[in-house]
Amino acid sequence: MTTAVQARNFDEFMEGIWRQNPVFIMVLGMCPTLAVTVSAVNALSMGVATSFVLICSCALVSLMRNVTPKEVRIAVYIVIIATFVTVVDYAIQAISLALYDALGAFIQLIVVNCIILGRAEAHAAKNPPITSMINAAGMGIGFTIGLLSLGVVREILGAGTLFGVSLFGANFQPWVIMVLPPGGFFVLGSWLLLFSWWARRKEVAKNV
């Protein structure tokens, strides 16, 4: 593989992680972002599940891109995405029922996550399988990072634990609001604030 190809692949990969981060830059897929990030484990599993669906469906969409007429493309994408969501649904049930209950309806709702349909339409339908898988992996990891950064803050403040490990001892006072829906909005808002403040600073520094 030539360096030019490597560089392009790396660029495709990093796009989702940083420049086009689905959570912090594009603010997509807010439904699972706010709903399941009560703990770091939930956030991580949701991120991994979404990434799996994203990568697999992008690969299949990309493979079929030359035989998909544009009139039926949305139907094709939805069928493909729904298939992999079903696979993930079974897989999580097989791995852990507790996790399945904690994530609830949001596993099935991956099917309507606009990141996935957006990637299929905007990227996978126009690029060869390897490239679109790399791009999808970047997006998936970017999404997982986004969920995890919410989940970590909410778990630490809301339960005093991180990945289930107690950080402050038994006497920790949980911030109840952090495990309730408003906490999701507060934490997401704070992260967005931090990122845009940082981006603004960088821009100012560039102009000076």
Binding site: P69, V76, I80
Partner: peptide, 21 residues
């Protein structure tokens, strides 16, 4: 062409789902 593609997709996806189940 449309029917062919949809049929192909459904067949592939059906196989994947049955396998996973």
């Amino acid at each position: 062409a449309m029917v062919r593609t949809l049929g192909l997709v459904s067949a592939v996806c059906g196989l994947i789902i049955v396998g996973a189940y």
